[in-house]
């Protein structure tokens, strides 16, 4: 009945919980192996998959924040972090500003960056290929209480609705002369005139929503059933257990490593 919304690529066909396990596995591996080459490999692999799944455009936003974070992390830690050993020579000096970058600070930044950046790429991929309603259903089928999975699914419908309200109200206020581009004070003053109507409207709708949910049996004592039919394949099983092994393995590795 539901027409194919997306092209069924391998990642998209996986059961949603499997992708959660994979996220756990990769996160543990990157954090606990703490190895710059491993992190680099994960990052390159993720970028290749992102290109393959045609998410490059959406990834641009994430990549910009990765770059900004990198610049700030390396710049500030490299020059100012007290870990730096200022008696040695700096690793390099930025020409015009005469900023001195020291080895310890840069290594410090690299450690943290090497943890965060690959995860940002890998997890972006895994979560973009997940449909949030499917994930909510996966949660319920996996044992999480119905109310929680409902709230999860409903959150992803509520956010765009409020976003639409926000845009409408911002346009309406601008048409009434609200200044959203002037100096800092003016922009600060513009915040409440947009925020308050959005919030007030949404609160006023709450009672109607509660009544509607009640009449649709939200609190009925029947065992709630699931409408969407999500298949679980062998690939899901393999990936799930590999991820669990990877997580445990990386934690054990870290523990052993800390003894030597």
């Amino acid at each position: 009945m539901i027409q194919e919304r997306y092209k069924p690529t391998f990642l998209r066909k996986l059961y949603p919980n499997t992708k959660l396990w994979m996220s756990l596995g990769i996160s543990c591996a990157v954090i606990f192996f703490n190895n710059i080459w491993f992190s680099l490999a994960v990052m390159i692999l993720s970028l290749i998959m992102i290109a393959y799944e045609k998410y490059i455009l959406e990834f641009k936003v994430v990549s910009i924040s990765i770059i900004i974070m990198a610049v700030m992390m390396f710049a500030i830690n490299g020059t100012l972090n007290p870990v730096n050993n200022y008696t040695n020579d700096p690793v390099f000096i930025l020409p015009l500003l005469n900023w001195k970058f020291y080895k310890e600070g840069l290594e410090y930044a690299l450690t943290y960056f090497g943890r965060i950046a690959p995860l940002m790429c890998a997890l972006f991929l895994l979560f973009r290929t997940m449909n949030m309603t499917d994930l909510g259903i996966g949660m319920y089928e996996g044992g999480i209480p119905y109310n929680i999975s409902f709230m999860f699914i409903s959150t992803f419908q509520t956010i765009p609705i409020l976003g639409k309200d926000m845009n409408q109200i911002m346009d309406a206020q601008r048409a009434r002369g609200l200044d959203t581009e002037g100096n800092l004070i003016k922009r600060f003053k513009a915040f409440l005139p947009v925020m308050v109507p959005v919030v007030a409207n949404s609160i006023m709708r709450v009672r109607n929503q509660a009544v509607a949910l009640e009449t649709k049996g939200f609190n009925s004592s029947a065992k709630k059933t699931v409408y969407r039919d999500l298949p679980k394949t062998k690939a899901d099983h393999i990936l799930k257990w590999s991820s669990i092994l990877l997580s445990i393995g990386s934690i054990v590795y870290r523990i052993i490593q800390s003894f030597f």
Binding site: N147, F150, M151, S154, T155, T158, I159, I161, L162, G163, M166, M195, V198, V199, S202, I203, V206, Q209, A210, L213, E214, F218, N219
Partner: peptide
Amino acid sequence: NTYMAILIPLGIAINFVG
């Protein structure tokens, strides 16, 4: 319960809007 099911997502959405 019903109000919770509505307000928790709403709180999250308001955080996003802010």
